[in-house]
Structure formats: C-alpha cells, structure tokens
C-alpha cells in the first residue's frame, strides 16, 4: 500500500468504524478522530448521535449563519440538531449513557490491553485533563470501539497490560487502527482484519500484546477513494 497522509489514515480508521454501525444505533463519538466517524456513515442509515452535554440527535457543526448560541456539542462547539432531536439535563444524559441505552461508544485511547482495559484520561505528571464523561461512556455503552492510530510515534499502544491509570477495566470490544481490526476476546487480542499491504510481522512488530489470528482473517476494507 502506498504511503498515506495522517489525514488519510484518520479517514480510513473513521470509515472502517462507520461500517460497524447499524441503522437506528444510538452512538456517542469522542472528540478528535472518533468525531470523524459521523462523516462516514451510509446516507440511507439513521444514526442517532448522542452528545453527553445533553442532546440526542446531533446533526453537524453549525456554520456562522445557523449559529445558535444555546446549542453546542461536548467540545463546546456550535452545532445543529437533527429533526426529531431532544435535549435533556446531565443526569438524564448519563442515565442514557450508564444505563446501557447507547449502542456504540467510539473513543480514542492512549493504551488498550489484552484484557480490554482502556487508559485515555491521564498521564501522571504530564497531562491531567480529567476524565469528563469517558469513564461513564466506557462502562455504560453496549459496545466500545477504540478508534486510534496504531502506535504513538512508533511506541506500541496495544499492550499486554496498560501501565497508565485506567479509564475502565475490561470494557473495550474492538480496536480499529490503520494497520488492522482487532477484537478483544476472552483469549486476548484477536486479529480479524489486516489493512491492505500490511503483513502479520509488521502489525505484530507494532503491537506489544500477542495477536491471535481469527479463523477467517480478512483484508480490512477501506474507502474506494483512498
């Protein structure tokens, strides 16, 4: 596979995550790469985007013409609401999240390990932004998908055990990176798909945890125009 730009890598990951969504799903997208998934869902599919500050039915970022100062996403950016959207307070918003009413939560990660542990909220002594809603989202969603670049400047993020403080224990179900798709199973990390042009040695070399091979290892589909 030819060399992809950082932007193309992010789009490839977001597009692949979008293929995991189903018509009617209630989905929460984290900030950064996960938020790009919203651009990649099939047009004939209805996805209800939940914004944890209190909206179900987020549409997109508002342009300056349609800017309503009362309507923002969880990053504080002005947004528009889809037809049929509803708003609520933070206790209701987290009842939706913690109560299992969100079908899929897509987040980024600093580290994921073979038990499905996730670390993405603190690097002690370095970065302490706080967990925001991430701990609730990961515990409460029916399915947790991590969308991230495979390594951090070449250092593996898929580990045997996380060494950063956890966001949640044993909650991650699937990891999508530019190198492949990995399921967290009872046996550890199960490689389901390899990105085009990537071989087993390459992905394992960039992964600290042992990758087990799925019976039906596939080539990871990517958008036609990449």
């Amino acid at each position: 596979m030819r060399e992809l730009s950082k932007q193309q890598v992010r789009r490839m990951i977001a597009w692949r995550v979008a293929q995991e969504l189903h018509d009617g799903d209630v989905v929460n997208l984290g900030i950064g790469l996960p938020s790009l998934v919203a651009n990649e869902t099939a047009k004939d599919m209805e996805i209800l985007l939940q914004s944890e500050n209190g909206l179900l039915g987020m549409d997109g970022l508002a342009d300056s013409e349609h800017h309503d100062p009362n309507l923002v996403n969880a990053g504080g950016q002005p947004i528009t609401a889809a037809i049929g959207a509803c708003s609520f307070n933070s206790a209701d918003s987290f009842a939706i999240i913690r109560g299992g009413h969100v079908d899929v939560s897509v987040l980024g990660a600093l580290q994921v390990d073979e038990l499905g542990n996730l670390a993405n909220w603190i690097i002690p002594g370095k970065m302490v932004p706080g967990m925001g809603g991430a701990m609730d989202l990961v515990v409460g969603a029916q399915r947790v998908i991590v969308a991230m670049e495979h390594t951090n400047k070449g250092r593996p993020k898929l580990l045997t055990r996380c060494d950063l403080p956890l966001t949640a224990a044993k909650q991650v179900n699937l990891v999508v990176t530019e190198l492949g798709v990995i399921e967290i199973s009872g046996q550890g990390m199960l490689l389901r798909e390899l990105a085009p042009g990537i071989d087993l040695e390459t992905i394992q070399a960039h992964t600290e945890a042992k990758l087990h091979l799925a019976d039906t290892l596939k080539t990871m589909p990517i958008p036609n125009d990449l």
């Binding site: 944890e52 307070n89 933070s90 206790a91 918003s93 987290f94 999240i97 913690r98 302490v128 706080g130 967990m131 925001g132 809603g133 991430a134 701990m135 609730d136 409460g140």
Partner: peptide
C-alpha cells in the same frame, strides 16, 4: 478533585 461527569451529576442530584 476530579469526578467522572455522570457521577458528578448523580452526586448533585
């Protein structure tokens, strides 16, 4: 004191 957002909401509620 950092409190998960949903927990903060429920502690206040």
């Amino acid at each position: 004191e950092l409190v998960p957002q949903g927990t903060l909401a429920e502690r206040i509620r």
